[in-house]
Design a protein around this nucleic acid. Sequence first.
DNA 1: TCTAATGATTATAATCATTATAATATTTAA
DNA 2: TTAAATATTATAATGATTATAATCATTAGA
Lengths: 141, 141
Amino acid sequence: MTRREQWARVLQENQIKPSYPRLCIYSYLAESKSHPTADEIYLALHDEMPTLSKMTVYNTLNILIEKKLARLISIEEHEARYDANTQLHGHFKCSLCDRVIDFPVQDQYISYDNLKGFDVMEKDIFFRGICPSCKVSGGKA
Amino acid sequence: MTRREQWARVLQENQIKPSYPRLCIYSYLAESKSHPTADEIYLALHDEMPTLSKMTVYNTLNILIEKKLARLISIEEHEARYDANTQLHGHFKCSLCDRVIDFPVQDQYISYDNLKGFDVMEKDIFFRGICPSCKVSGGKA
DNA sequence: TCTAATGATTATAATCATTATAATATTTAA
DNA sequence: TTAAATATTATAATGATTATAATCATTAGA
């Protein structure tokens, strides 16, 4: 089974009909590590799919979020990024190179003493600062 | 010294001239626990200050953020909320009543093993789910 | 006190990502 | 093969925020 077929199967298992545009969008997001914006996805796929509309990108991303196959990363106001990794992890945004980098978060290390009685369904952990390579290069990397 | 005068002093200590609109906006934010949006601040102050413009609210909030007297809470896309509590703490948004509730976060319980070499300057911890009172009332409280 | 000059506030218009709507195309099922 | 359902597209609308420029207030110097 090709990787494409595997992504199609994931969509089907989540009641999303794997149309060609949807499969392209989901594959791109799932194989990307850069947490792209809707616009970046649209631009990246535009070459191989000149008829693709942005509405389809937005529609597909909203369906993926609804079915919990993707998450919206609002680490920056006015910059909606998307991530197909729905496991708990943190996001670090470097203020110099603007890259968003994943980091592991171990749930058991977060204290929940003060959230007794709350049903916690989603967790976002956003850090900002300077990444190691920008500390060396001064952000010019 | 009145509370008003104390907030004015905080502004001055941070090189912000405590004009009447600025003092109103900062006092309101500092004494609020509801993490208001710019629009909510504007509406709340409009009665006692009919000439207030929204631009002043936005300007003042941006100055407060710049001087680290307030933080932008982007727990929800397309809904910029503000918080004058700049100490590390988490925000929980109830999906039923839409309230944003603070919860303590103990920094030492977050594992940083995988952030060696990163300069972490800002931390946002956003949880979503159902709050205890909505669990009882079904969100109708 | 008068007058520049500076800074704060306001009003207006512009921007831009996202959504709404409706039309078109495609797929599905009878 | 046709009708119904669904997906995609094009276009226009929305709405929060920012840009710009004009007005107002405040301060400092003569």
